[in-house]
Amino acid sequence: MENRSFVTISGHSKENILYLIEMAKQFEKCTNRNLLQGKIVATLFFEPSTRTRLSFETAANRLGARVIGFTDPKVTSSSKGESLKDTIMMVSNYADVIVMRHYLEGAAKYASEITNTPIVNAGDGAHQHPSQTLLDLYSIWKTQGTLENLNIVLAGDLKYGRTVHSLIMAMRHFNPTFHFIAPKELEMPEEYKLYCHEHHIKYTEHTEFNEKSIADADIIYMTRVQRERFTDLMEYEKMKNIYILRNEMLNCTRPNVRILHPLPRVNEINYDVDDNPKAYYFQQAQNGLYARQAILCDVLGITLNDVINDMKDKS
């Protein structure tokens, strides 16, 4: 049996990414479906993540599936020393698809190799978070009308921010120009710059975050600068007020620019930006629902045609 697991975005072809985006679009048109009626979706959260879990569970519920799972590994056998393999084998007997979040890197890939039940990676440590990437791509596509030839500013913590790393890899098909803006301590790791070279992705690097550095952007992708990442807290105190996006900085930006953020934000986007039509982070989170509906359907073998025909039946 072909395992249709969704564990990483970097392996997806351009066609496949556009296909999933098209499917997400269909779900945005009509969200409540019964495409997964009779199916059981297991959400195994070995590490708590309220936002991602709620988004996946909402997606499952709006597709007519039922949801089982746990939100905290403390209440499961893994706290008794059960291996991941045993947990996955056990749950495979019950569920049609397993959505899993794990604190260990590579956990989802391993799970997908030991069971025929499709696995959806809802984040594995600092490694991958592909459903976040798909919703980021969908948000970019929706606000810009295309994924091709865009100017994308990535600002904040580029060292540990897995969402920005996955985004770079997924965008390689679409000829982007990236602008990495980060303090020295949190600059883009060498391996991703090397990845850009290998895939002929254009990028520039800056440490200054100001009106000038965002003037040409089509997308400004903000990430949180976390206090615990700094060895020198003096440095953190200096940095935390530099990498803040304020409303007045947006005056000279392009009219089509949109501000994205994987959320939760702390103080890197000032609250006065929220009412600016260029702010898009809350809609972005909503797009997560449609992206995850598309992912759940795809791993369960439901095609774009099925989704389109299902809507015709409704109207």
Binding site: L84, K85, L104, Y110, A126
Partner: peptide
């Protein structure tokens, strides 16, 4: 070499 890799935490 990654201590947080699944291979260092599972019998595999």
């Amino acid at each position: 070499i990654n201590p947080k890799c699944i291979t260092n935490n599972e019998p595999m």
